[in-house]
Protein backbone atom coordinates (compact mmCIF):
# COMPACT_ATOMS: atom_id res chain seq x y z
CA UNK A 1 0.00 0.00 0.00
CA UNK A 2 1.25 3.47 -0.83
CA UNK A 3 1.94 6.07 1.83
CA UNK A 4 0.79 9.41 0.49
CA UNK A 5 1.57 12.84 1.87
CA UNK A 6 -1.46 15.13 1.71
CA UNK A 7 -0.14 18.65 1.13
CA UNK A 8 -3.14 20.13 2.96
CA UNK A 9 -3.07 17.86 6.04
CA UNK A 10 0.74 17.94 5.87
CA UNK A 11 1.20 14.33 6.86
CA UNK A 12 1.68 10.91 5.29
CA UNK A 13 -1.45 8.78 5.36
CA UNK A 14 -2.19 5.27 3.98
CA UNK A 15 -3.51 4.91 0.44
CA UNK A 16 -6.89 3.71 1.76
CA UNK A 17 -7.73 7.32 2.67
CA UNK A 18 -7.21 8.46 -0.92
CA UNK A 19 -8.87 8.11 -4.28
CA UNK A 20 -6.71 8.26 -7.40
CA UNK A 21 -8.09 10.73 -9.92
CA UNK A 22 -5.98 10.26 -13.05
CA UNK A 23 -3.49 12.38 -14.95
CA UNK A 24 -2.93 15.91 -13.66
CA UNK A 25 -2.53 19.25 -15.45
CA UNK A 26 -5.20 18.53 -18.06
CA UNK A 27 -6.99 21.81 -18.59
CA UNK A 28 -10.54 21.59 -19.88
CA UNK A 29 -10.80 23.92 -22.88
CA UNK A 30 -12.93 26.95 -22.03
CA UNK A 31 -14.44 26.90 -25.54
CA UNK A 32 -15.37 23.20 -25.39
CA UNK A 33 -18.24 23.55 -27.91
CA UNK A 34 -15.95 24.99 -30.55
CA UNK A 35 -12.91 22.72 -30.43
CA UNK A 36 -12.29 20.15 -33.17
CA UNK A 37 -12.76 16.38 -32.76
CA UNK A 38 -8.96 16.00 -32.69
CA UNK A 39 -8.64 18.52 -29.88
CA UNK A 40 -11.45 16.87 -27.93
CA UNK A 41 -9.82 13.45 -28.36
CA UNK A 42 -6.49 14.80 -27.09
CA UNK A 43 -8.15 16.43 -24.08
CA UNK A 44 -10.61 13.68 -23.17
CA UNK A 45 -9.13 10.34 -24.25
CA UNK A 46 -5.39 10.50 -24.94
CA UNK A 47 -3.08 10.09 -21.94
CA UNK A 48 0.68 10.36 -21.39
CA UNK A 49 0.72 7.14 -19.30
CA UNK A 50 4.50 7.45 -18.91
CA UNK A 51 6.86 4.69 -17.87
CA UNK A 52 8.77 6.89 -15.40
CA UNK A 53 7.70 10.12 -13.74
CA UNK A 54 3.99 10.81 -13.91
CA UNK A 55 1.99 13.78 -12.67
CA UNK A 56 -1.33 12.68 -11.26
CA UNK A 57 -4.29 13.87 -9.20
CA UNK A 58 -5.29 12.37 -5.88
CA UNK A 59 -8.19 13.16 -3.58
CA UNK A 60 -7.90 12.79 0.19
CA UNK A 61 -11.45 11.50 0.22
CA UNK A 62 -11.46 10.00 3.72
CA UNK A 63 -9.51 12.93 5.16
CA UNK A 64 -9.76 16.58 4.25
CA UNK A 65 -11.64 15.72 1.04
CA UNK A 66 -9.45 17.96 -1.13
CA UNK A 67 -7.82 17.29 -4.50
CA UNK A 68 -4.07 17.68 -4.87
CA UNK A 69 -1.34 16.65 -7.33
CA UNK A 70 1.58 14.28 -7.04
CA UNK A 71 4.72 13.44 -8.99
CA UNK A 72 5.37 9.69 -8.81
CA UNK A 73 7.68 7.23 -10.54
CA UNK A 74 5.50 4.56 -12.19
CA UNK A 75 8.31 1.98 -12.23
CA UNK A 76 9.17 2.12 -8.50
CA UNK A 77 5.77 3.56 -7.43
CA UNK A 78 7.70 5.99 -5.20
CA UNK A 79 6.30 9.47 -4.70
CA UNK A 80 8.74 12.23 -5.56
CA UNK A 81 6.55 14.99 -4.13
CA UNK A 82 2.95 16.07 -3.66
CA UNK A 83 1.70 19.63 -4.08
CA UNK A 84 -1.51 21.60 -3.85
CA UNK A 85 -4.02 21.80 -6.69
CA UNK A 86 -3.46 24.82 -8.89
CA UNK A 87 0.29 24.95 -8.31
CA UNK A 88 2.54 24.48 -11.36
CA UNK A 89 4.53 21.28 -11.96
CA UNK A 90 7.39 21.34 -9.46
CA UNK A 91 11.07 21.33 -10.44
CA UNK A 92 11.78 17.66 -9.73
CA UNK A 93 15.58 18.04 -9.74
CA UNK A 94 15.28 20.61 -6.95
CA UNK A 95 12.89 18.33 -5.00
CA UNK A 96 15.22 15.36 -5.37
CA UNK A 97 18.17 17.52 -4.31
CA UNK A 98 16.37 18.50 -1.11
CA UNK A 99 15.61 14.87 -0.31
CA UNK A 100 19.19 13.72 -0.96
Amino acid sequence: MLLIRCPYCEEERPELEFRGAGEAHIARPTNIAEISDEEFEAFFFLRDNPRGVTFERWRHIHGCGRFFNAARDTVSDKFITTYKAGEPKPDLDAVRGEKA
Binding site: M1, L2, E15, L16, R19, G20, N49, R51, T54, E56, R72, T74, V75, S76, D77
Partner: peptide, 13 residues
Amino acid sequence: DQYTSYSQTGGLH
Protein backbone atom coordinates in the same frame (compact mmCIF):
# COMPACT_ATOMS: atom_id res chain seq x y z
CA ASP B 1 -5.10 -0.86 -8.26
CA GLN B 2 -6.24 2.74 -8.58
CA TYR B 3 -3.02 4.28 -9.90
CA THR B 4 -1.06 3.83 -13.12
CA SER B 5 2.09 1.76 -12.76
CA TYR B 6 4.63 -0.37 -14.59
CA SER B 7 5.89 -2.08 -11.43
CA GLN B 8 4.11 -5.46 -11.81
CA THR B 9 3.15 -5.29 -8.13
CA GLY B 10 0.16 -3.86 -6.32
CA GLY B 11 -1.18 -3.12 -2.87
CA LEU B 12 -1.91 -5.92 -0.39
CA HIS B 13 -5.23 -4.31 0.59
